[in-house]
Each structure stands twice: as C-alpha cells, then as structure tokens.
Amino acid sequence: MKRELAINFLFSFVGGAMVWALSPSLSGQVEPWDAEGFYYSVALLIVGLTVGFARPKHVWSHYAGIMLGQLTYMLLLIPVLPGSSLILVGVAFLAVYSIIALAGAASGAWFRRVSRSAR
C-alpha cells in the first residue's frame, strides 16, 4: 500500500508541476491563474482525470500530490520577493483550485471502474 501511495503521489506531483511549467507556453502567463479564460481550471481537471484514471486507488493522494507539485514549482522556480505576504494567498489559491483536480481524479477513477466493469 505504501508503494502505491508513493507512486500516486509522484504521478500527481509531476502533473501539478506540469500545470505551472506549461503555463507560459500555453497561456502566455507565468502564473496559471493569471491566464485569460479557463486554462488553470481546465489544466487541473485534465491532470486530475489523467492521474485518477491511471491510478484509481487512494484518490486523496492525488490531491496532495497535485497541490504540492504546484507549490514546489511555484516556490522554487517562480521568482518571488523574499518575505512576500502574497505567498500565503498563493498557497490558499492552490489549495482551493486543487479541489478541481481532486474532482477530476475522482471522476477519472470512477470512469476507470465503470470501463472495467462494462467488460
């Protein structure tokens, strides 16, 4: 079980980081929530659906992985002023927006179960 949780977390962590890594080229914005339209929401939903479908057990671990993948990318690779008070706002945004990815992961896991039971 620990191995499966670790794999889920790793897949989700990479997926969450990729939302941020691809944002400049796909949306034209360094921070995905600054993009016009629905880039951030759709990207989180796609990542959630993908990891939930690929790894349907322990859906909550996908939320944690996606959330921490985004946070790690944001803190390590996006230039931020030291001591910025907006860091806490950013973490709150990540936590709330990542609920979209959680819904996607739950949906992906459900689609996987339904497709397997239909066989």
Rank of each mutant, 00 (worst) to 15 (best):
A54W: 11
T50G: 05
Y40I: 01
V30G: 02
S27W: 10
G48Q: 08
F38G: 04
L71H: 04
L71C: 07
S25T: 14
T50N: 00
Y40A: 03
G69C: 01
L68M: 12
P56H: 01
Q29I: 04
L45D: 04
A54E: 10
V59M: 00
A64V: 15
V42I: 15
A43W: 03
Y73G: 07
V42C: 00
G48D: 07
W33E: 05
D34C: 02
S41E: 13
H62E: 02
Y73L: 11
L45V: 02
A43E: 01
R55G: 02
M67E: 11
E36N: 15
E31N: 12
L77G: 01
L68W: 05
Y39N: 02
F53Y: 15
E36C: 05
G69P: 01
T72L: 15
I66M: 09
Y63M: 04
V59C: 02
I46V: 15
H62I: 11
L44P: 07
A43R: 05
P56T: 06
S25M: 11
L44K: 03
P24Y: 04
L71E: 11
A54I: 14
L77T: 02
F38Q: 10
S41T: 12
G37P: 12
Y40K: 06
A35H: 06
Y39H: 03
V51I: 15
Y40S: 14
A64R: 02
L77A: 08
L68E: 05
W33T: 01
G65Q: 09
G37R: 05
H62K: 01
S27V: 07
I46M: 14
L68N: 01
L68P: 00
M74E: 12
H58Y: 14
Q29W: 08
L49Y: 01
T72A: 15
Y63E: 08
Y63D: 08
A64Q: 07
P56C: 05
G52N: 13
P24F: 04
W33Y: 11
L71R: 05
S61T: 14
M67Y: 13
S23A: 12
A64K: 05
M67S: 14
L71D: 04
V42R: 01
T50C: 00
L75T: 11
A43V: 08
F53H: 15
G37Y: 08
G48H: 06
S25N: 10
P32H: 10
G28M: 02
K57Q: 13
V59I: 14
Q70N: 11
E36Q: 13
F38V: 11
Q29K: 14
K57N: 15
E36S: 15
A64Y: 09
P32V: 09
Y63G: 10
Y63K: 05
V47P: 00
P24L: 02
V47Q: 00
L71I: 10
M74W: 14
W60R: 09
F38H: 11
R55F: 06
L76C: 14
E36M: 12
G69M: 04
G48K: 06
S61C: 12
W33C: 01
A35D: 03
Q70D: 09
S41Y: 15
A54P: 09
Y63N: 06
L45E: 04
M67T: 13
H58G: 05
L76P: 08
P24W: 04
Y63L: 03
L75V: 13
V51M: 13
Y39C: 07
L68Q: 02
V59A: 10
G28A: 00
Y40C: 11
W33M: 01
I78N: 06
G52S: 06
L71T: 09
Y63F: 13
